[in-house]
Computed example of a mutant assay.
Amino acid sequence: MAWIIQLHNAFPNKIFLLFISIVIPTTVEYTTGIIMRKYFNKDYWDYFNERYNYKGIICLRFSIAWTIISILTIEFLQPFLIIRIYSIVKPIWPILAILLIILLTFDEVYTLIKFKNKGQINLK
């Protein structure tokens, strides 16, 4: 979805949005399906019984569904959430940013200590 948002922001055209809303989700679904089959021997979804399927991994019906969901998300949900979240976060952002940096630093140090104690890394 982030790719669609970024591309739509760069090229705000309805036809282009339709195109990337078809191509990106279908490509992600196909790639994920191939990886799941190859590395995990799993099929988490099976479109063999669907019309116009390809290798049972993608099909026209679900590509259309992903396209509609993507367009609705980009056109309506994402702008609404951005406005809501921005209005909540903007007043507290300076404090929140400092807290996040402190938490990330603490997590990094804690992780390095754990790895060192397990002998997985050598801190010299």
Rank of each mutant, 00 (worst) to 15 (best):
Y30Q: 10
Y30H: 14
Y30M: 14
T31P: 01
T32K: 11
T32P: 02
G33D: 09
I34A: 09
I35C: 04
I35G: 01
M36L: 14
R37M: 09
R37H: 10
R37D: 05
K38Q: 14
K38M: 11
K38D: 10
Y39E: 03
F40I: 01
N41I: 02
N41A: 10
K42F: 00
D43E: 15
D43P: 00
Y44D: 06
W45F: 04
W45I: 01
W45R: 03
D46L: 03
D46F: 04
F48Y: 15
F48P: 00
F48C: 02
N49R: 14
E50W: 11
E50H: 13
R51E: 13
Y52D: 04
N53V: 02
N53I: 04
G56E: 08
G56I: 05
I57L: 13
I58V: 12
I58K: 07
A65T: 03
A65L: 08
W66A: 08
I68D: 14
I68A: 13
I68W: 07
I68E: 12
S70R: 05
S70V: 00
S70L: 05
I71F: 05
L72M: 01
T73M: 09
I74K: 03
I74L: 07
I74S: 02
I74Y: 02
E75S: 03
F76G: 00
L77W: 08
L77Q: 01
Q78W: 12
Q78A: 08
Q78S: 10
Q78L: 13
P79A: 10
P79L: 13
F80H: 09
I85K: 14
Y86I: 05
Y86C: 04
Y86Q: 15
Y86K: 15
S87F: 14
I88C: 09
